[in-house]
Every structure is written in structure tokens, then in C-alpha cells.
Design a protein around this nucleic acid. Structure first.
Lengths: 229, 229
DNA sequence: AATATACAGTGTATTTATTACACTAAGTAA
DNA sequence: TTACTTAGTGTAATAAATACACTGTATATT
């Protein structure tokens, strides 16, 4: 059967933008490459897609290999296929972003030979990136800026229990602007998707805030319309 | 260089949803396949991507081969890569939609051997489709439903000069609901992107409406926020 | 015990946007 | 002249977005 298809020496890969939120900052996981091309450059984690796995599976695998995590929110957002994007041949790359809860530094797994190290880097302090990864990153960031106004993705970056101020920080850091505290709270609570846990923060050196949980059951498919702040 | 990459017998293809608007209806171009697999089934037009063309170029080529048209609005919207989606092997497909102005029936080019015929079919009367093309179509339609609220894509489906009623029809048929005439006009005109041509429709058997043109220069990158109707 | 600090938590008034709704005007066709 | 068909128009009511500043409460410091 397969011989019906012409043979092109083409490949696909997955590139992943792993976003994490920690200490009020939006961070992204970058690896330092250990192989040509772009040896010693920083890059988004990625890998070729094997014949036996779907795109989603491949993206999950890459994430798992780096972080040891499963069941992380991931979404495909664009496919990059310019002819010259990879110096070693035709490689089309399907890009995903993932959103994950960083508690301190999420333990990073031992890396395979293709990377020397991996670091969480503030999105406002990115080094120069290999390949067309800057373009991929820019598009991914744009994507989550739009997404966060329509879908409840902010919760994916927070621990299960969070305060309204932490939630507001996620919106602020992704949208890149300060929001009004009273208006933010009013609107968020109006969606009725936050469950008040009648519980307070612990271990803070000032007045503890109320903890909330995102209530998936109360959430329809989309916020009725775009959230505007 | 290329021998550094492992050899997987994988391919990519492009599948295109060609949307057209004609006589108040939203239509899509389907081909009837002339080859196995899915011989005699209806399908979205598509083709393998050759090594020397970018994804966008490949999509434009497919559209050109079918319709003879160039410079048509196209946008990539999702990549489908489930392992079993193509019975003849691993084929990952990058999906595009295109929006085009149908004047009567846009002349369809002679088709290559892989299709017997091509037809413009009302999106509400689709036959059963080959491969996972129903899923691709559904996602494409969802995409333009969201897009039309944020970006001026409706104009791509209309002739250069159009009436406000025609524009409203485009919105109605894509969103799948009736809109209020006065509110629609008020809001559309408030964006200041329509140029009144001081010109009337011709050849209509009733009162002729004013013609407008979309003014790209007056249009920023996005409508300020989602358009709600 | 008193005080300073740091963040939590709250309400109102104004402006802007959305919605609902029905008739007259103008051209064509018979 | 009349009937028909679509064009074109405004207002009032409701809902949403915005701008804005102080008090409350727990902790830490002296």
C-alpha cells in the first residue's frame, strides 16, 4: 500500500512551548542544544514525530520526557512549513503550547543527548533562539493572549487552590497590562465558575486571602463572549 | 546532511475547505474522488506537499489548480495527524480554508485524474465525506464563525462593491442566525471601514441599495473587541 | 502593648454598548 | 395607478464596562 505514495525525504516534528507561572512571572522552558545544527543555542523543546504516534501523543511525550508530567493542558496552535526553516532538510513542525503549574522549579528529567540543559526563563528575557523558534514562540504567546479571554486556561497555570490576586496576576502577566482589582473580581465572580473554599492561605506574612477552586462543572464550553478588562 | 534524519515513511498533505458565498448561501467546493481509497466518495480537495514548496504555497497551488484563481484569502487552521486517518499510510494533513467570491459558478478547471468532478455544495447539505474530512470541515466552519467576529473576513466572500444587506447575509449564513437589520447597520458603520460609493445597485427588480466598499486602509489589525450581534 | 506594614476586600456613579422594536421611502412591475 | 419588494431609518430600555479610594485584618517589629 505505502508504495503508492511517492517518496519525499520529508519529516515532521513537534515543537512545544511550555509555559509556566511562578512567583508572578510567566516563564517558558528552553533547552540548550547539544547537537548541530544550532549547537549551544537555546531552543524550544521538540522532536520528530514517530510513525506510530499521533501529533497529540507526540507532544505529550516530549513534555513527559522533559518534566515527568502527564495530563498537562496542551493545545496545537500552528504548523510551520517554510522550505528553508531547517538547515538539514525539509522538516515541517507542528507547534503546541502547554500550560503548567510550577511549584518552585518543576523537577526536570535527565535530558537526552540533544540537550545540555533546560531552564525556565522569563518570557520577557528570552535569549536568541535556534531555527524559527522566535517566530513560533511569538505566535504561541499571541495565541494564549487570545485564548485567555475566551476559555478558562488561566487555571491551568495555578495550583488547585488559588487566590483571586494570583488569578489576576496570571491575566496581567499574559495580557501584559495591569488590571483593576475591583473590576477583575466583580467580573470573575460573575461567571460563577469559582468555588469559594472557605479556607485561607497559610504561611504568608500578612493577611491571608481566601482560596478558590475552579469548578469545571459550572463552566459551559465558552465564556459567553470575550472577556474584556 | 539529510541522511542524519531517520527515514520514516510519512507524508504531509494539504486539505482545503474552499468556502464561497452565492445567492445568499454558503457553499463549499467538494470533489468526487476518482481513485482509491474512497473512490467515488466526496472529499475536500487536497494534495501531497512537495519538497520544494511551503505549506502556504501548496495550499495556493491546490486552489489554483481547481479554480484558476490566485491571490485568494487562505488561512491555515489545524493539522490533523491521527495515526489511522489515512488507510494507505501515515499522512499528516495541514488544513486550510479559503474564502472566495463566487460570481454565478466560478469556472472550475479541468481536474486531474484524482477527481471526477467538483461541485459547489451548500454547507447544510453535505454528503458523507471521505477520510476524516467531516471532522476537518466542522473545525474549519467553527474557525470562520469565530474569525468573522474579530476580523474582516466577510468581505472576502463578497464582490468588491456590495450592499449592507449582502454583508448582513454573509454574517447570518456563517453565524447561522438572523440578525437585526438596524443594529447590524449601526454597528458595521460604526467601525468606519466601509466606504459609501454614492452608487446604487443595478439590474435589480426593486429599489436599488447603496453600494459600499471595504476600506482596508481605515482598518486596524483587529476590530477592537469581539463583534457581538 | 503599640505601631507599622502589607495585602485583602469592598461599592457606586458614569459612560458606553447592546438589545428590542416598526414604520416610511423608493424603485420596479403589472 | 396600484401592488409589490426591499431600502433605509431612531429611540428607549437594559446591560456591561470603566474609573476610582478607602477600611479591615493578620503579621512583624519595636
Amino acid at each position: 500500500m505505502k508504495e503508492l505514495l511517492p517518496h519525499f525525504n520529508s519529516h515532521f516534528s513537534i515543537d512545544c512551548i511550555l509555559f509556566g507561572f511562578d512567583e508572578g512571572e510567566l516563564k517558558v522552558l528552553l533547552i540548550e542544544r547539544n547537537e548541530e545544527p544550532f549547537k549551544d543555542w537555546w531552543a524550544l523543546p521538540g522532536n520528530l514525530v514517530s510513525e506510530s504516534e499521533s501529533l497529540d501523543q507526540s507532544a505529550s511525550r516530549i513534555l513527559h520526557e522533559l518534566t515527568g508530567l502527564d495530563n498537562v493542558f496542551m493545545e496545537q496552535f500552528y504548523t510551520f512549513g517554510d522550505v528553508g526553516r531547517h538547515p538539514q532538510g525539509r522538516i515541517i513542525s507542528v507547534a503546541y503550547y502547554a500550560l503548567l503549574r510550577l511549584g518552585g522549579d518543576k523537577a526536570l528529567k535527565p535530558l537526552s543527548t540533544y540537550a545540555k540543559q533546560a531552564h525556565w526563563i522569563n518570557v520577557n528575557e528570552l535569549p536568541q533562539l535556534a531555527f524559527d523558534h522566535q517566530k513560533i514562540f511569538d505566535q504561541g504567546l499571541e495565541k494564549i493572549k487570545r485564548r485567555i479571554k475566551h476559555q478558562p486556561i488561566a487555571f491551568e497555570l495555578l495550583p488547585e487552590k488559588f487566590t483571586l490576586t494570583q488569578l489576576q496576576n496570571v491575566y496581567e502577566v499574559i495580557l501584559g497590562k495591569k488590571l483593576d482589582k475591583r473590576n477583575f473580581r466583580k467580573k470573575m465572580l460573575s461567571f460563577s465558575v469559582l468555588k469559594d473554599l472557605n479556607e485561607k492561605q497559610k504561611g504568608v506574612s500578612f493577611r491571608a486571602a481566601t482560596l478558590y477552586r475552579f469548578d469545571k462543572r459550572k463552566y459551559g464550553k465558552l465564556f459567553a463572549k470575550e472577556i474584556s478588562f
